[in-house]
Design a protein around this nucleic acid. Structure first.
Length: 241
DNA sequence: GGCTTATGCGCAG
DNA sequence: TGCGCCTAAGCCA
């Protein structure tokens, strides 16, 4: 591992030349374990990216914050909002403020259900709150609420227990598909199976970024509004308040 | 080539 | 509540 330029170099210097042992993720947080040297905490934020390159990787292009080089391939990290060396207690502190992650095996949604059930905040905001549950982003919040026919403005406490179970199940299913194929596809994701190049421009979402376009189910124009400083999308006809 | 937008979040005020 | 981060993709010309 190396830390070529600017920002984050101080912390990362401590693991310069160290061997990357393993990685794990909780919600949107990624942890790279370097054994006794510590843990590198990465959060991609809005525009962080890892790009993969064959070895030899050549000189870094642009503002590369962290480079990991393997035997055959390596990665360059750019644009992340966090890339810092932390110790075990700091890892625990981050995990302590995160709710259950639908992508983690054997994740227990009960604490999330409890928080939602007693909240008067809209479900569209609760799904984005990392303390309630972690990993759900702005695309999935709009899409799973459409799939479950729940209006994003409905108060959390006004969801039935069965709806909470169904909503969680929907998140698990959809996010697993996203993980497997490497992109968010809600509309007929099985088309991607075995052929990532299949119909690259076919529809991927029901409502996300489709403001004004007809609902794929009922034809009603999709609405958009800001909720918690993020763009929200929904069908006023399919989704019940 | 330029402009806009964004799968997110911490912090100032 | 609004800004800053500062990359990449999509869209237009």
């Amino acid at each position: 591992m190396s830390s070529p330029q600017g920002r984050f170099t101080e912390g990362a210097a401590a693991v310069n030349g160290r061997t990357f042992v393993k990685a794990h993720a909780w919600g949107k947080h990624l942890f790279h374990d370097y054994g006794p040297a510590g843990v590198v905490h990465v959060h991609l934020g809005l525009y962080g990216t890892f790009t993969e390159l064959p070895v030899p990787m050549g000189l870094p292009i642009g503002q590369v914050r962290m480079r990991i080089e393997g035997a055959e391939f390596g990665t360059d990290l750019r644009g992340a909002t966090a890339c810092e060396l932390i110790d075990a207690p700091q890892v625990d502190a981050i995990l302590a403020r995160l709710g259950p992650d639908p992508l983690r095996p054997r994740s227990d949604p009960a604490p999330a259900f409890e928080r939602i059930a007693k909240s008067r905040r809209p479900i569209g905001a609760l799904l984005m709150d990392q303390k309630v549950m972690s990993g759900v982003g702005n695309v999935y919040r709009s899409e799973v609420l459409f799939r479950q026919r729940i209006d994003p403005y409905r108060e959390g406490g006004r969801l039935d227990p069965e709806q909470l179970v169904a909503l969680w199940g929907e998140l698990v299913d959809r996010m697993r598909v996203g993980l497997r194929i490497g992109k968010i596809v809600i509309v007929d994701p099985e088309h991607d199976r075995g052929d990532p190049s299949y119909a690259p421009d076919r529809p991927r979402t029901y409502v996300y970024r489709r403001a004004g376009a007809p609902c794929r189910v009922c034809g009603t124009p999709i609405l958009t509004a800001e909720m918690d400083a993020r763009n929200l999308f929904w069908c006023p006809s399919c989704q019940i308040r």
